[in-house]
Simulated assay, not measured.
Amino acid sequence: MDNLELKTYFDTPERSSAEEIIRDYLLFHLNPIITQILEGIPELAVIINKNRQIVAFNKKAAEVFHISETEKLLGNRIGEALNCIYSKEMEAGCGTSKYCCECGAAKAIKFTDDNKINTVEESKIIANLNGKEFYYEFLVNTQPIKFKDSEFILFTVKDISSQKRKEALERIFFHDILNTASAIEGIAKLLSKVDNEEESNELIRALNEASNQLLNEIISQRDLRNAEDGKLNVDIKIISTIDFLKAVEEVYKNHELAKNKNLIVEYPSECNEFECDRTLLLRSLGNLIKNALEASDEKDDIIKIYSYCNHEYVYFNVYNNKVIPENIQLQLFQRSFSTKSTKGRGLGLYSVKLIVEQYLKGKVTFVSNDALGTIFTIQIPIKFNAN
């Protein structure tokens, strides 16, 4: 198919020929000064041509791309070299899908190409390596360069994953957990001053809830870190769908976020059993429920949890009637992305996808439109297969 017939939602679909790629590669490869400059950059550095294809790179880039053979890297675009999960979404490849409209790397390249000036963008890229998803967080710098009467872009990145992880932990531990601990302190002080038995019992109940919330927040962060490091242990047991949904209802019907909200749990007509880690599944589904509760700001809004199954999978669904804007839909599940303005949020959906798909062998999907509202689904196999 001709380049011009290819569809794109963002950047141009055209590609250079193999002959043009080799010509540009030799242009840089045979110039020792260019080679020395590239190797002098401590982070990933590549030079891309007018069609965003790689024509030169340093050793750090080859290391990050997990590609040692030059011929396998030349001609690829950045997302293709990283094996971005969206790079094959469109026939025209990296830079042409709807997801690319929100990609920091794609936006930086397009801006520099259009305006002929350098720019800096944060970029979150989800890559698939050997069947597992990896989450890159980069600070991208694009610089226009003119060489031998041709225009190129120098694309360099700094890995900011550790910085983003630190910001997230600061948000969680210095804000969320501090708030919960402060609430516990406040309740304890009130409890020492109350003589009425009914009020005392109510405060004790609130104190227990706040203490459990604090413990769960700390455990959740521990498990997330272990999951990222590949060290999370799963405790697989036989679970009843109805018993599990009863536990979900018990946890969230009196949750602070559920106040003045219509939280409905629908039970299946038949009680089915499946194999899973109950704690991890409850926490993952709980993240989806809390997101739905936070998104619902009116008393008439309905948040519904329901389940169904077939002979292979059991499905747990969380519904609310709000619609997620498309630009946000395109970025969900990315590490550190959040619809909240507060810096450091955004681990909820990321952790759900990481734990459900890599440890519980399930799948997380969603649909959000005017006709259906928003439905997040966790799909869990009936029979757990550790392989």
Rank of each mutant, 00 (worst) to 15 (best):
R283F: 09
P268M: 04
A258C: 04
V234I: 15
A258T: 03
T279M: 09
Y315L: 02
L293P: 02
I305G: 02
L282F: 02
F333T: 03
S338A: 10
E273K: 15
Y315T: 05
L232D: 04
K322A: 02
K246R: 12
L214Q: 03
F316G: 01
E275T: 06
E270K: 11
S338W: 04
V265W: 02
Q329A: 11
E273I: 14
I305T: 04
K304G: 00
K299V: 03
R225A: 09
E275S: 03
E228T: 04
F244I: 12
E249A: 13
Q334R: 13
I289S: 03
A295K: 15
A258P: 01
A247E: 06
N260G: 10
T279V: 13
D229M: 09
S240I: 03
V234W: 05
R335M: 14
K299T: 03
V251H: 09
N327R: 10
L257P: 01
L257H: 00
N321P: 09
N254C: 08
K290T: 15
S336Y: 07
R222A: 07
E250M: 01
K304V: 01
V318F: 05
Y319R: 01
T241P: 00
Y308P: 09
L280V: 04
K237D: 05
I242H: 01
L214D: 00
I302N: 07
V323E: 08
V318R: 14
S220T: 14
L245I: 13
C271N: 15
E312H: 09
N317G: 08
N320P: 00
P325M: 07
E298H: 13
R283C: 15
N262Y: 11
E275H: 00
R225F: 13
C271F: 15
